[in-house]
Design a protein around this nucleic acid. Structure first.
Length: 920
RNA sequence: GGGCUCGUAGCUCAGUUGGUCAGAGCGCACGCCUGAUAAGCGUGAGGUCGGUGGUUCGAAUCCACCCGAGCCCA
């Protein structure tokens, strides 16, 4: 035939490439954002608009970002960008947490032995350098992910202006009287010689001695209580024996003695200690022995008193628990606080026994274990000794076992001034997403003990406390803090280490207890949770933000971490919660749902994903996941998103390509003149906008993702775009048929682009740059407004009709496939379709839309019959498929009986009219 | 050991108050097209809804227990 009408068609034209080349494209887009100062540009476009502040929780600056921090920052970015498009002014100031043990530890490893010759302020300088280096590293990595924020002006906890805020928050607590000095058993690492926070503890298996010891009653010399312990070295500090108040205890005769052991542990106990002949002779309750005294197993001049405690376990041991308030949290709470037993802790900071330990003085506690056991054996009080492997607290720094040791520390009283109660009230006012977050943080706040805030460490915010040189009183005074703050403003908190105490104290300062003016500087630093927990105070004053802040968004571990410290400090300083809404996400696991760890070799590096696939794919992966729970990642899972990305990208390419000649002002067709199929597509788009908005509002991004992916593949690619090709390509460029379709494609393009901007932030920027100039009001798509749901575009009846028409279409497609398998047809345009409606309703429907059926099914001819049965039985219609009669139009490929051979040979009447310029 | 959370096709997710709820997309298989072309279209095969009991006329959906995983504690 050789007749080529291709050049007469309006085929898509676009520079928008099919292949993304994300890695390099993203770099270019990042440069563009940099060049227009994206962050401030977008803020300027929302001048005077209501403000929405997502306050960034500061990551710890001691390494590269990992997949979890990437997840967190991308989620925040999606929220911020969505809110911007909804018309909010959305300042977003990233922050970093920079003080604390991990950095000090890493720096001390780098310095090695040299550290011993360095002054505290020299070590602090090294720590600062280290922290700022990783602030820079992480900043670049976060930016690379496409996160928009005030990167040139972040908040950093080591900066003087921030330290001032930490100390101001702290001062509020000091003034309110919530900070006190106390002896309390706390975790202590004898190797690092430091107090450890609960967060600095790791539980690992440890082999300990397991000994059963009997204590002799003072009143009845044949009566013994048997205790079990895995820390013999704590026995010198023993002052009590705890029994459960409710569970029954048996009195058992063993030889000439009577032993007290919990009834339900009797069998296990005697089996364990290898005693076969015993005889129960009585039973008692904990109350029966409450207050009774027993002889101390090691020191003859001391006694051990029975107390009751409901935490006593009936699972292991004897149900009688050795109490040493100086060496255990619960021992302290029950023994000291409830029963007033003394707190003994005759162990120095290196784990060596002191005076109070009598003959054991000078021994390292672990070496003393054996000797103590030996002494017990000699005294005939050792019932049994063996070894046990159990989970035991270890130091996160040196990995060695830690001990509980009573030391003098600064504490924040959680209950003074009803602080805890007020925090609990505030928790109720916050919106927790998901909802269970509220119960989680509530129970944590309800049960938490007082907050130990002092660290015997160099790298932190100094606690400006002094010790009286006369009476030895430790003094923390608001006046000292105020005076110190003047130095901090100018030179940072380093001043505490660098300046003389005379300068640091107000001139007339005297010891409130003895009036002395001789003081000694105390060098403890603050728990870093005070640093980060004070961030609300810094950001609110620096940016003049409305308080409370709108949202905090972190991993669910922060219910005990940052959300927790922030709300306590905020209630103390400002009387209310710092946030209105708290959104939490889960953790990232490998493809088998296991935790990521170096040892398992299943760690996915976010920057590796970025290098290999692009940040956009990482963002898309995140959007596809239900991040409220733990989510899985692996290169295979990421790869899947690369496929989805291509699909979405090609949809945009098609839309752009078919709008190359569409001027939105000139060519738009009014709604009432749109063809039915176009009206339907426009109506469906409204539904997509409505749902997407709903899902974004509830932060359910995976629902947005599923909605959009399905929309692009099913609704657009497989139906609407496929169907509308005929009109776009074949009809005259400026015809109403083509402009009608383009009008809707244009609406779809803009809406889809905007809906995806928070997630596919790079690609939508690229799409934006390919838009008609009249569609680009801003320099960046990020400043655009959210697509509007237009009710006037929703024709309910039409939408319902099309829902049924599409069911008919499914039947037709199945019938076509059957014939395709039989080689009757290839392309669907080869076919003529004969339909037999299953009922009157469908018959009327088909009649009504008679003129759109061929287009909708993409076939050459559709006939509707009543009588004869058809070959294919569908759900809505029966279908017979035949090869279309007539000849194939060389231009539009539809078969026609009236192919002309005049001016335009081989062409159907429609195409001939188009070519003659008669069809508009 | 305790508190909280999770467990639906190979993958990512839907499944409102228990009764067409066993679904979607991707991937896979087979085929079509060659005017979205390192694209596009069609058809199809995949799950006893972690397991076991129970409540109910009826449960992925309610209860109990168990298994597995995670976070936070001890």
């Amino acid at each position: 035939m050789g007749l080529d009408y291709k050049y007469t068609l309006n085929l898509p034209q676009t520079d928008f490439p099919m292949k993304a080349n994300l890695t390099s494209k993203e770099e270019k887009i990042l440069e563009w954002w940099e060049s227009i100062d994206l962050y401030h540009y977008v803020l300027e476009q929302r001048e005077g608009c209501p403000v929405f502040v997502l306050h960034d929780g500061p990551p710890y600056a001691n390494g590269h970002i990992h997949i979890g921090t990437a997840l967190n920052k991308i989620l925040k970015d999606i929220v911020v960008k969505y809110k911007t498009m909804r018309g909010y002014r959305t300042p977003y100031v990233p922050g970093w947490d920079t003080h604390g043990l991990p950095i000090e530890h890493q720096v001390s490893l780098e310095l090695g032995e040299k550290i011993k010759t360095m002054s505290p302020s020299d070590i602090r300088k090294k720590c600062e350098e280290f922290a700022l280096k990783f602030v820079d590293v992480q900043r670049e990595e976060f930016k690379r992910l496409g996160v928009r924020g005030d990167w040139n002006n972040p908040y950093i906890t080591l900066k003087p202006e921030y330290e001032v805020k930490i100390l101001e928050v702290f001062k509020a607590l000091v003034e309110a009287g919530n900070v006190y000095r106390s002896t309390k058993p706390i975790y202590w690492c004898p190797r690092c010689r430091t107090a450890l926070a609960e967060a600095e503890i790791e539980y690992k298996d440890h082999v300990s001695p397991s000994i059963y010891v009997k204590l002799k009653s003072v009143e009845e010399p044949d009566l013994f209580v048997v205790i079990w312990t895995t820390t013999p070295w704590t026995l010198p500090a023993n002052v009590g024996i705890a029994l459960h108040p409710d569970y029954p205890y048996s009195v058992v005769r063993v030889g000439k003695e009577r032993w007290v052991v919990a009834r339900q542990l009797l069998d296990a106990f005697f089996r364990e200690v290898g005693v076969n002949s015993y005889e129960p002779v009585g039973e008692l309750r904990g109350q029966d022995l409450e207050g009774k005294e027993f002889e101390h197993p090691l020191f003859e001049d001391r006694r051990s008193r029975v107390i009751l405690a409901d935490y006593v376990s009936m699972e292991t041991g004897t149900g009688c628990v050795h109490i040493a308030p100086g060496h255990g949290e619960e021992d302290f709470v029950y023994g000291h606080l409830r029963y007033g037993l003394p707190v003994l802790s005759p162990v120095n900071e290196e784990g060596v026994f002191t005076e109070g330990a009598g003959k054991y003085k000078g021994m390292f506690i672990e070496s003393a274990n054996e000797i103590i056991v030996d002494d017990l054996r000699k005294k005939g009080l050792l019932v049994h000794a063996s070894k046990v492997t159990h989970s035991y607290p270890h130091c996160w720094r040196c990995k060695g076992p830690v001990i509980f040791r009573a030391t003098e520390q600064w504490f924040i009283s959680v209950d003074k001034n009803d602080l805890r109660k007020r925090v609990l009230e505030e928790i109720e006012k916050v919106k927790w997403i998901p909802e269970w977050g509220k119960n989680r943080i509530r129970s944590m706040v309800e049960e938490r003990p007082d907050w130990c805030i002092s660290r015997q460490r160099v790298w932190g915010t100094p606690i400006p406390a002094v010790r009286c040189g006369e009476c030895n009183e430790a003094i923390l005074d608001a006046r000292i803090i105020d005076h110190f703050l003047k130095f901090v403003e100018k030179e940072g908190a380093d001043a505490w280490f660098e300046r003389n105490l005379e300068e640091l104290l107000p001139n007339d300062f005297r010891c409130p207890k003895c009036g002395s003016s001789r003081f000694e500087k105390m060098l403890d630093t603050l728990d870093v949770w005070i640093d980060s927990g004070s961030s609300f105070e810094y950001i609110v004053t620096r940016e003049d933000h409305p308080f409370p802040l709108d949202m905090y968004l972190e991993g669910s571990d922060q219910h005990r971490g940052w959300f927790h410290s922030s709300i306590f400090l905020s209630v103390a300083k400002r009387g209310r919660a710092p946030y209105k809404e708290v959104l939490t996400h889960g953790f990232i696991k490998d493809e088998l749902g296991r935790k990521m760890s170096k040892s398992l070799g299943n760690v996915v590096d976010p920057m590796e994903v970025v290098r290999k696939y692009g940040a956009e794919i990482l963002r898309l992966w995140l959007a596809s996941s239900d991040y409220f729970n733990d989510i899985k990642i692996s290169m295979k899972i990421v790869e899947q998103q690369a496929e989805v990305y291509k699909k979405i990208r090609n949809t945009f390419r098609f839309l752009l390509g078919n709008l190359y000649d569409f001027d939105p002002e000139r060519d738009k067709v009014p709604y009432d003149r749109l063809l039915p199929i176009d009206k339907w597509a426009l109506g469906r788009l409204q539904e997509v906008i409505r749902l997407a908005t709903e899902y974004y509002d509830s932060y359910e991004f995976s629902k947005v993702y599923n909605l959009i992916v399905k929309y692009c593949t099913v609704e657009l690619s497989a139906v609407y775009l496929d169907v509308v090709k005929d009109r776009l390509y074949v009809e005259a460029k400026d015809s109403s048929y083509r402009r009608s379709a383009q009008t809707v494609l244009h609406e779809i393009l803009l809406a889809l682009m905007k809906i995806l901007t928070p997630i596919m932030t790079f690609t939508m920027e690229e799409v934006y740059s390919h838009l008609h100039e009249k569609d680009r009001k801003y320099l960046t798509v990020q400043a655009e407004y959210w697509p509007e749901y237009r009710e006037e575009f929703v024709d309910e009846k039409l939408l319902e009709d099309f829902e049924r028409l599409l069911e008919v279409r499914e039947d037709v497609l199945k019938a076509l496939e059957e014939k395709r398998q039989q080689d009757v047809i290839g392309h669907s345009l080869d076919a003529e379709v004969i339909l037999r409606p299953k009922n009157r309703e469908i018959e009327l429907l088909l009649e009504e839309y008679r003129d759109t059926l061929e287009e909708l099914f993409i076939v050459s001819k559709v006939r509707i019959v009543e009588g004869d049965e058809c070959e294919f039985k569908g759900n809505a219609v029966e279908v017979t498929v035949r090869h279309a009669s007539g000849e194939k139009c060389q231009r539009c490929w539809k078969y026609s009986e009236e192919i002309s051979w005049g001016d335009f040979p081989g062409v159907c009447p429609r195409c001939a009219a188009v070519l003659r310029g008669e069809r508009r």
